[in-house]
């Protein structure tokens, strides 16, 4: 099969929107980057709410067709794949979504999400094998199968539900995990556990993660590569260490200044101005030439 590479070239996503000058809202503007599965890595995409980062996730997952530009998997456009290529792409590009509450259909028990993965991707040939697989994956994310299986979503905590999503990833072993703000609704301790599991997956199961977040401290923890996106434009990219220490774009500096530090001697003293007006957009002009990661 083809190389496991996701490539975005000049992706633009516009939505119809009333009240804007031209009737469109541009969520993503000319986004280009490459995600490679070998070697497995973590690539973080950082930006504030409304910066277009979740839209990019939906583009990569094939849930939203970009208005311009291409998303390719193994060199083929993901919206134009043959049956076998589509199966391969789906198997290898899987999400963890932001909201652990609405990711489960309230009508069904949580087991169904896992069984669906088993059946749709033919992970096990017998019921026993499927059960064994589900139990193994739940244990891999530190969940007690006896305490979560057979329950309804509302009977589990947010952390448990989000870890069931990770168990699903563990079962599917995709080459790419598209994690769209997976920890923004978890408390601090569960968050660290979640990130550690992601890092374990990267090491043990060779998964590349596109980690989308608004929180630079989690990016710092994960390491790897980082891209900073604001107002739909990727303005900065590079290894986490260099972007963190020598931010070249003013927006990145703003983000870095916004990380709270648990140090009473180092309290926030200055106010940060968050510019909401679209006219003050100088970011596109200042964006450095996009260079491919790696």
């Amino acid at each position: 099969m083809t190389d496991k590479v996701i490539e975005l070239r000049g992706v633009q996503q516009r939505f119809h929107a009333r009240g804007t000058p031209d009737g469109y809202l541009t969520a993503v503007q000319d986004a280009s980057f490459t995600l490679a599965a070998d070697p497995p890595q973590v690539v973080s995409l950082v930006g504030q709410s409304g910066s277009g980062k979740s839209t990019i996730a939906r583009n990569v997952l094939g849930l939203q067709k970009p208005t311009a530009g291409t998303v390719t998997y193994g060199g083929k456009d993901i919206f134009n794949l043959s049956r076998a290529e589509y199966d391969e792409y789906r198997k290898n590009v899987q999400p963890v979504f932001q909201d652990p509450y609405s990711i489960f259909n309230p009508f069904y028990r949580v087991d169904r999400v896992l069984w669906k993965a088993v059946k749709k991707f033919s992970l096990a040939s017998t019921r026993e094998a499927g059960e064994a697989l589900i139990e193994e994956s739940l244990k891999a994310v530190s969940l007690d199968p006896g305490r979560v299986l057979g329950r309804y979503p509302h009977q589990l905590s947010g952390g448990q539900r989000q870890r069931i999503m990770l168990a699903r990833i563990h079962m599917l072993r995709p080459a790419f995990v598209i994690a769209d703000e997976p920890v923004s609704m978890l408390d601090a301790q569960i968050r660290k556990m979640f990130l550690d599991i992601l890092l374990d997956f990267q090491r043990e199961h060779r998964m590349t993660t596109l980690f989308i977040t608004h929180d630079l401290s989690t990016v710092y923890y994960l390491g790897g590569q980082v891209m900073v996106i604001t107002k739909g434009v990727i303005v900065e990219r590079g290894p986490v260490s260099s972007v963190m220490h020598e931010p070249s774009h003013p927006y990145t500096r703003l983000l870095l200044d916004s990380i709270p530090q648990p140090d009473p001697a180092n309290r926030w003293t200055t106010r940060i101005k968050v510019d909401e007006s679209p006219d003050a957009d100088t970011t596109a002009a200042e964006a450095p030439e996009p260079r491919p990661l790696l």
Partner: peptide
């Protein structure tokens, strides 16, 4: 537009 519909879609439903 619920996430569980998206999840079903990426599960090849």
């Amino acid at each position: 537009s619920r996430p569980y519909v998206d999840l079903a879609r990426v599960s090849k439903a």
